[in-house]
Design a protein around this nucleic acid. Sequence first.
DNA 1: TTTAATGT
Length: 260
Amino acid sequence: MKKQYIYLLLLLFVLGACTILLKQDPAIAQNNTNNNYDTLAFNFTTYQPSSQNQVANKTYYSLDYNEEHEQANWVYYLLTSEFVNGTAKRKDNFKADKTITTESANLSDYKKSGYDRGHLCPAADMKLNEQAMSETFLLSNMSPQLPSFNRGEWKRLESQVRKWAIEEDSIIVITGPVFKNNIAQIGKNKVTVPGAYYKVIYDLTKPQKMTAFIMPHTKEIKTFTNYQTTVNKVEQETGIDFFAILPDELEENLEANSSW
DNA sequence: TTTAATGT
């Protein structure tokens, strides 16, 4: 009888140790639980960028809402092959984000503005399930984009990011506007039409690497590869601090290079 | 092709 208790205690101890070990790196630990997508739900704040305004957490991504410009400073999410290869279909159910305390932009702001409701987190990155897809249509995830930009070179960059997610298994993606040389303001809420957009990509698997893009928001534009840059450059342009949790030396090294 | 949207 006593021996059985000892074995039971031993088993519990081992299980406990395993749980603690798996929890050490949330983003990677989640990736190991292939069949439970709820753990991919956005409960990792480890690599969240510095916030300037209201952070709103969605199920599969989070964003920092900038009331002055009526759009996010950044959207941030983990992109895996499961998200890219999902089967959820677009429903184009654009809607205001009622969780934004200062109120998000609304549908009439964009109506007949001549600008697309451009997704910051693309709908095609959230094919995992209906809820994931639906949450990308919140107006807090939108930025007014020239149709030629949104459906052209920016779209091609978004496709490339999805290819990287499949190649690398999982990557962290951060996307947002650069509020410099802004083009216009649209609607009653005066939604800023930004002068440029950035993307920051971080592959956590070893060897770790980062890359970034800053693309001018213009009709005339070169192939997106011409706009590849470093995370440091994006920090300079936006004032956002990315991956502050990394050890300083690693952060400096990764952010100074565009090693993709 | 699908993806990303607008207008009817």
